Simulated scan of single mutants.
Amino acid sequence: MCKHILNAQVAIRAPCCKQWFDCAECHVESAQNSETPHQIKQTMEMVFACKKCKKVFRKDMETFEEADEFCPHCDNHFVLEAVEPKARLEVEGEDVRKDSRMLKDDRVKAKEQMSIWDDEGEAARLG
């Protein structure tokens, strides 16, 4: 699962190290943390693995057309506008539509907290 592109439809095989990555930024991070740091090698023949049907295919980028934006095995459209994660501020907890324990209803009276030193209660009623 790629943390840079949330809607990645294919994995890319890097021609330099022959490893699979979800995006070029994932390759950069992996290469920086490896024993042999390197840049991704530019090539005109890309190797893709479709995430829908899990099959591998090649595309020549010199003759890339609009019809080449689909997986040849399952017709999955893999050339999409990238959806990148955005920073946002939220309240910790689940969605209130699913879990409403965080909400307080002012119409419901809260139970009074009693300590062991209070005279009121069942011991005072025994008489």
Rank of each mutant, 00 (worst) to 15 (best):
K54G: 12
K54Q: 15
K55I: 05
K55P: 00
K55T: 03
V56L: 11
V56A: 02
V56Q: 01
V56G: 00
F57H: 00
F57G: 00
R58A: 07
R58C: 08
R58N: 12
K59V: 14
K59A: 11
D60K: 05
M61A: 06
M61K: 09
M61L: 15
E62V: 13
E62F: 13
E62I: 14
E62P: 04
T63D: 10
T63A: 11
T63E: 14
T63F: 12
F64E: 06
F64R: 02
E65A: 10
E65F: 09
E66M: 13
E66P: 01
A67P: 04
A67T: 14
D68T: 00
D68Q: 06
D68W: 10
F70N: 01
P72N: 01
P72C: 00
H73R: 06
D75N: 15
D75R: 15
D75V: 12
N76D: 15
H77R: 14
F78D: 00
V79E: 05
V79T: 03
L80Y: 04
L80W: 07
L80S: 09
A82Y: 10
A82T: 08
V83W: 01
E84A: 09
E84N: 03
P85S: 03
K86H: 12
A87F: 12
A87M: 13
R88K: 12
L89W: 11
L89Q: 13
E90K: 11
V91E: 15
V91D: 11
V91M: 13
E92F: 02
E92M: 08
G93F: 08
G93M: 06
D95T: 00
D95Q: 00
D95E: 07
D95Y: 01
R97Q: 13
R97W: 12
R97E: 15
R97S: 11
R97C: 14
K98L: 15
K98D: 15
D99W: 01
D99M: 02
D99L: 03
D99K: 06
R101F: 02
M102R: 13
M102I: 06
L103Q: 03
L103A: 08
K104H: 08
K104F: 05
K104S: 08
D105V: 03
D105K: 04
D105Y: 04
D105A: 05
D105N: 07
D105W: 04
D106S: 09
D106E: 11
R107T: 05
R107F: 08
V108R: 05
K109Y: 10
K109P: 02
A110E: 14
A110I: 06
A110H: 09
K111L: 15
Q113I: 05
M114F: 13
M114T: 06
M114P: 01
S115K: 07
S115A: 10
I116M: 11
W117G: 08
W117A: 12
D118G: 00
D118S: 06
D119A: 09
D119K: 03
E120W: 11
E120K: 10
